[in-house]
């Protein structure tokens, strides 16, 4: 792993201006529907900060006028003919639901 450490030193961003705060981490956690306890928050904040610091490497690239790539091959929407075909049986489709009844997935009450 000593070689990897050398790589990090080579690439580590110099401008430490992007910092992720505990509040940012908690906000992202709320968006992602993940709850963090105090220890997890502290650990994650530090790790994400280090990773984001590394991402700063990208700021040295001039991307003005460069269009983003979201898909590696030129592809267009793949449409199929609108015809009915065999699909999963209802029982098979809901079998993996943690709770199901009469072919329906059961969840806690949504509207109080």
């Amino acid at each position: 792993m000593v070689y990897i450490a050398a790589l990090i030193r080579k690439y580590q961003g110099v401008n430490k201006n992007v910092k992720i705060t505990d509040a940012d981490v908690l906000h992202a956690a709320a968006l992602a529907r993940i709850s963090l306890d105090g220890d997890e928050l502290r650990k994650l904040s530090g790790e994400l900060d280090a990773v984001l610091d590394y991402m700063d490497l990208l700021s040295e690239v001039d991307t003005s006028g460069v269009s983003p790539t979201h898909h590696p091959l030129p592809a267009v929407n793949a449409m199929r003919d609108d015809v009915a075909r065999q699909s999963l049986d209802l029982e098979d489709a809901v079998r993996n639901a943690p709770r199901h009844k009469d072919g329906c997935v059961v969840v806690p009450k949504v509207i109080e």
């Binding site: 992007v18 991402m55 990208l58 269009s67 983003p68």
Partner: peptide, 15 residues
């Protein structure tokens, strides 16, 4: 813009 868009642009340069 700072992360996802920037990364997707650099992805173009790599390709």
């Amino acid at each position: 813009d700072a992360y996802y868009r920037k990364a997707s642009q650099v992805r173009t340069l790599i390709a």
